[in-house]
């Protein structure tokens, strides 16, 4: 790794000030992507600002309508959270399937979303559930946040502080994990909630995207049969040695149907008490 200056920010203001002062700073959340890309020399920051000790970024708050997750919350903590499991089990399943146990003990929701890897799981949750990204400067709706390959609406130095998930009536997430990396070759989140029916796909293209034709069909009938004949165009999908665009397009259909089946099963209904 290159040489860099390291600092631990105690507050959001500290972090922003350090970022402003540095030539080319990077925020360090869980480091599960940033450190590997620094090892490869793909990121060569002058300064690394650790967010681990900023209290404002920690914590999970759950109400009947909304789940707020602090940006530095580790995947393992989302997966294990009892109230999230009761209200929005699809999110527990998604968080519990990221990487592996050791990665989930370090990786954070804020870090994953700021990075916006095209095969990451959380973008499917945020877009597929109609979540809101809250930063130190503003709130950003999911549909404005994701802007393609590793691109987001975040300005330089802008920090995600938390993510607000509306609690849907029902939701399901299914992914076909790459067998080595556990990233999604394709992952599909289907939800029926306050933002209507949503179908969001990760892993298949340059960034997370919705499938309006499936959403419309599911609005009429929330069954796997309703979307069985909806074609997925593969022109813009990813083709690589792990799977062709046509294969990924096929997986979108298969996994979306499984996600609907899951969402429609009693176990995946939120239990509002």
């Amino acid at each position: 790794m290159n040489e860099f200056k390291f600092m631990r920010a105690a507050t959001l203001a500290d972090a922003a000030a350090a970022f402003e002062k540095a030539d080319d700073a990077r925020y360090l959340a869980g480091g599960q992507t940033l450190l590997p890309v620094m090892k490869q020399g793909l990121a060569v920051p002058s300064d690394v600002i650790s967010l681990a000790r900023i209290g404002e970024l920690a914590g999970i708050a759950v109400s009947k309508e909304r789940i707020d997750i602090g940006a530095m919350t580790r995947h393992a903590d989302v997966a294990a959270h009892k109230e999230i499991r009761a209200l929005l089990p699809a999110l527990s399943v998604l968080a519990g399937g990221i990487g592996d146990p050791h990665v989930r003990n370090r990786g954070t929701i804020g870090g994953s979303l700021a990075n916006n890897d095209p095969a990451a799981d959380y973008p499917a949750a945020v877009l597929g559930l109609g979540a809101t990204i809250v930063t130190d400067e503003r709130t950003i709706a999911a549909e404005h946040y994701f802007q393609g390959l590793f691109a987001t609406a975040l300005e330089p130095g802008e920090l995600i502080t938390r993510v607000e998930f509306p609690v849907p009536r029902r939701a399901g997430y299914v992914k076909f994990p790459h067998p080595a990396s556990r990233y999604a070759l394709v992952g599909v989140m289907v939800s029926d909630g306050p933002h209507g029916i949503r179908v969001a796909v990760t892993g298949a293209g340059a960034g997370v995207f919705r499938v309006p034709a499936m959403e419309q069909a599911l609005a009429k009938s929330f069954t796997p049969e309703a979307i069985a004949d909806i074609p997925i165009a593969d022109a813009d999908l990813t083709s690589d040695r792990h799977g062709s665009a046509a294969y990924r397009a096929h997986l979108v259909g298969v996994l979306a149907r499984r996600a609907v089946t899951l969402a429609a099963s009693p176990a995946m209904h939120g239990h509002r008490s």
């Binding site: 480091g31 599960q32 450190l35 690394v48 592996d100 003990n105 080595a180």
Partner: peptide, 28 residues
């Protein structure tokens, strides 16, 4: 050294982590 194999797994504050993908200073 790419956080895939897990040979470097250690336990930090009760949690298993891949020590090749954590800065030593983050364990302060």
């Amino acid at each position: 050294d790419t956080s895939q194999c897990g040979a470097c797994t250690v336990i930090v504050d009760g949690r298993s982590i891949k020590s090749c993908t954590m800065l030593a200073h983050e364990a302060d």
